[in-house]
Design a protein around this nucleic acid. Structure first.
Lengths: 165, 165
DNA sequence: TTCCCTGCAAAAGTTTTGCACTACT
DNA sequence: AGTAGTGCAAAACTTTTGCAGGGAA
């Protein structure tokens, strides 16, 4: 394990350090958040939410639509978008805008992490680094601003594309 | 070695540390880049590029269109977009996608900086921090990726909105 | 039974493109 | 003269919305 830079020790893949909620856990949360708001649970919402919770991360609306269609061919695009917005309001989803035209969505509620996006193959790698987080807070404090969220994205060639190049 | 506690000393407003090229300087560069590529200089391109170089940063295509119209009412949206793309290819412009629907454009070629965006008033504050840059490179190295560019955006309430709140 | 929810299609917002015409070099 | 550039309008793409009908509580 290299130790020249102290960043080395701090960089680690984002995947869960404590138990990650299952799709079922998240469905229960979704239902209770809906109830809290006086909104209804419906077959479409459940289908969309379950597919979203079970699928790989950083999905686009288009991809989600295609996946949901496999389970429930009746669902329309409008309901996909409306449900994505709803999941966001329920704090169960993050909406991300990488350097593309369309938004990508990921399951919320895990430890904060940032992203590396491969310019060539589009692969998205998550990582986390506590020093980075601390430094951002320090910068915000110095500027006198109140931080609500932030975005830190690295772009380049992933290890695979780099060698294949 | 980056440390969060001394970030204070490193945070400074981004504005130029060495002489900033004038709009005229940039126009000359633009013309020579066009020539290199066998492309033509035209009245519309000059009008758009000059307005862009002289105007405030982080402009949207819509705002630029309105400004250019004042100088040359004949210019169409298509030419605005085509010229923005051209300026990008000439490395004279950065395209940014903050948390909005539309892209914003800024003059390229100055020292690298990052952005704070106010959630309330939309104000954009630039800042730079060398520790942050170093740390990003260290992270990239650790992940085995080749970095081409990155994006670091802080969102929240600016000092003004924070007190007015 | 009451609204909320859904699907469809149309609209909206941003950016790109086809085409005939214009104008640099 | 020849080729790249322009304006307009239409298209493309992503996301939102109006509306009439359907379904959860």
């Amino acid at each position: 394990m290299p130790r020249a830079e102290n960043a080395d020790e701090e960089v680690r893949p984002a995947p869960e350090r404590r138990r990650r909620p299952t799709a079922d856990d998240r469905m229960l949360t979704f239902h209770s958040r809906l109830r809290e708001r006086g909104l209804k649970s419906t077959g479409q919402r459940d289908d969309i939410a379950r597919v979203f919770f079970e699928l790989r991360r950083h999905i686009s609306a288009e991809e989600l639509y295609a996946e949901v269609k496999k389970v429930n061919p009746h669902v329309g695009y409008a309901t996909i978008y409306r449900t994505l917005k709803l999941l966001k309001e329920c704090d169960l989803l993050f909406e991300r805008h990488f350097d593309e035209g369309q938004a990508r969505y990921e399951v919320a509620g895990e430890h904060h992490h940032d992203h590396f996006i491969c310019d060539r193959c589009g692969k998205i790698i998550e990582f986390e680094n506590d020093d980075l987080e601390r430094m951002q807070r320090a910068i915000a404090q110095k500027m006198g601003v109140l931080l609500t969220h932030h975005k830190m994205e690295l772009y380049g060639l992933c290890a695979d594309c780099r060698t294949r190049q």
